[in-house]
């Protein structure tokens, strides 16, 4: 019985990672200095979430984003000095590593979208990521980012507005 439970748990986490991994990584990249650190954060968040879920099976997967956010905040606090020195490197690494799967059609347009998204302030970017790719509601986004749902909705509108302003001259 224990073996069966362990097997089930084993396959369950893989399914969960398959379903949420890409979105978690994208969200972690909004918080992290580089892709490697983003992966470290996702790993830590996933393991903590999974351990918590063993005691409380009712924990919903969107809580994973809260774990990512908290771990990223803790790490940023610990490594602030180091991070500020790595700003230039961060940009270089980010440029060399896309956030999205390569698209077959209209690559140029996709690249423009990604570049515009990267240029947004992090507060707007993280809301956009949680809304569009993670599929969270503004209430859930508010809980994850510890802001009110109203603030989340405003940041979302501002973010989209800024994206449109950047893209309109290029794409039309």
């Amino acid at each position: 019985m224990a073996t069966m439970d362990q097997d089930k748990a084993g396959s369950d986490w893989q399914g969960l990672l398959q379903e949420w991994g890409a979105r978690l990584l994208l969200f972690a990249r909004q918080q992290a200095a580089d892709p490697v650190e983003a992966e470290d954060i996702v790993q830590e968040a996933f393991v903590r979430y999974w351990k918590s879920r063993l005691d409380r099976p009712d924990l919903s997967p969107p809580l994973l984003f809260t774990f990512v956010r908290r771990i990223a905040t803790d790490r940023a606090r610990q490594w602030r000095r180091r991070q500020t020195g790595l700003d230039a490197l961060r940009i270089e690494v980010a440029n060399g590593d896309g956030w999205f799967e390569p698209v077959i059609e209209d690559r140029e347009r996709a690249a423009l979208l990604e570049t515009a998204l990267r240029s947004l302030p992090v507060e707007q970017r993280e809301v956009l990521v949680l809304k569009i790719w993670a599929g969270l509601t503004f209430d859930e986004i508010g809980t994850t980012l510890e802001i009110s749902p109203h603030t989340a909705a405003s940041r979302y509108r501002y973010g989209l507005g800024q994206l449109r302003r950047q893209l309109t001259p290029v794409l039309t």
């Binding site: 890409a22 994208l26 999205f100």
Partner: peptide, 8 residues
Amino acid sequence: HRLAPKQP
């Protein structure tokens, strides 16, 4: 929405 986040 059409942009798919990169898989880990």
